[in-house]
């Protein structure tokens, strides 16, 4: 019986330890404070594509979510005036495991009050350059779609999106939801072509999550959000943070409606988070980075299990 053995070899774990230490050094030098927010959370995200673990205790009877991201807690700290902060630790998402996914993973998330996305992207580049040298190029969601799939994701009709999907891929489903076809095409035709280090900016407004939105030069409403891809692997996701509690509540309610229509569990909205936003969070930019994935890509590994001590 060999199942007791770690999924990464010991040499890789030494490299991982040095890697985690170097991240802490990076932020210490920049005077960003580490915060270890709770992993057991009283509320969770409403995003229909993220499922949370629910944990129960018998006595005293209690129920928590395992946090899917430290975002809500960190923003409550920002509203309380903590200044620039980062979290380096575990997050949990109940999703199918894969070569790039583990339901338990290590996340690095940080917030920069008074910064815009350009400054934050520079900082992400600086962090990543220590592990993966080379220039970072920049594109937009729309341009990447045009380059890799030959279609404008905003002006293409639903029929055109479906036709392209059927030509290039073999979807075993049908849907009238435009977003699903965009996700299919982006993940299968665009992402694998994002080789080297690439920032993708200006995602569709429907994918804004907690980012601000604005109108691009073609008249499309887009999210002030970027993703960093390295060799086709999504590494980091950053936002110019939406500050308006009313806008955020409306998005959460839309999520909850979508969850209801898909017969998914509908978690309660995180009122403490919204109260903090109402009290006022300073304008800021924030980003979350998949630590295991960055180590995987930097080490030339193809499977996340090779860089994690154990995989579920």
């Amino acid at each position: 019986m060999n199942d007791w053995k770690p999924s990464a070899d010991i040499g890789m774990l030494q490299k991982r330890a040095a890697f985690l230490a170097s991240i802490r050094t990076f932020f210490a030098a920049r005077e960003v404070m580490e915060v270890d927010v709770p992993v057991l959370a009283q509320a969770t995200v409403t995003d229909p594509h993220i499922e949370s673990f629910l944990v129960y205790a018998q006595a005293p009877l209690s129920q928590y979510y395992l946090m899917t991201s430290p975002e809500f807690y960190m923003k409550r700290l920002l509203a309380a005036g903590c200044g620039p902060i980062y979290y380096l630790g575990k997050a949990f998402r109940a999703e199918d495991a894969g070569s790039r996914h583990s339901s338990e993973f290590t996340i690095l998330e940080w917030y920069r009050p008074q910064w815009n996305l350009v400054c934050l992207m520079d900082e992400v580049s600086a962090l990543v350059a220590a592990y993966i040298p080379g220039e970072v190029r920049s594109t937009t969601y729309r341009q990447a779609f045009l380059d890799c799939a030959g279609i404008d994701p905003y002006s293409a009709s639903l029929a055109e999106l479906k036709l392209l999907a059927h030509e290039k891929l073999s979807p075993a489903f049908d849907s009238e939801e435009r977003a699903i076809w965009l996700d299919l095409l982006f993940s299968h035709l665009v992402e694998p072509n994002l080789q080297g280090k690439v920032f993708v900016e200006q995602f569709p407004a429907a994918q804004a999550a907690l980012a601000q939105t604005f109108m691009d030069e073609y008249g499309n409403v887009v999210a002030a959000r970027f993703e960093l891809y390295i060799n086709g692997v999504e590494i980091a996701n950053g936002y110019q943070e939406e500050l308006d509690a009313g806008v955020l509540r409306a998005r959460f309610l839309t999520n909850s409606e979508m969850r209801k229509s898909r017969e998914q569990a509908v978690p309660a909205i995180d009122e403490k988070f919204l109260a903090a936003m109402d009290a006022g969070m300073p304008p800021c930019a924030g980003v979350a980075l998949g630590v295991d994935r960055l180590l995987m890509v930097a080490s030339g590994e193809k499977n996340i299990a090779a860089v994690m001590p154990f995989i579920h």
Binding site: D47, H49, G98, R100, H101, A179, H188, E191, E234, N237
Partner: peptide, 15 residues
């Protein structure tokens, strides 16, 4: 079977 999930959004199984 390989699970494919974009940064935000619908996840897929490529089989």
């Amino acid at each position: 079977n390989e699970n494919v999930k974009p940064g935000k959004g619908q996840a897929f199984s490529r089989t």
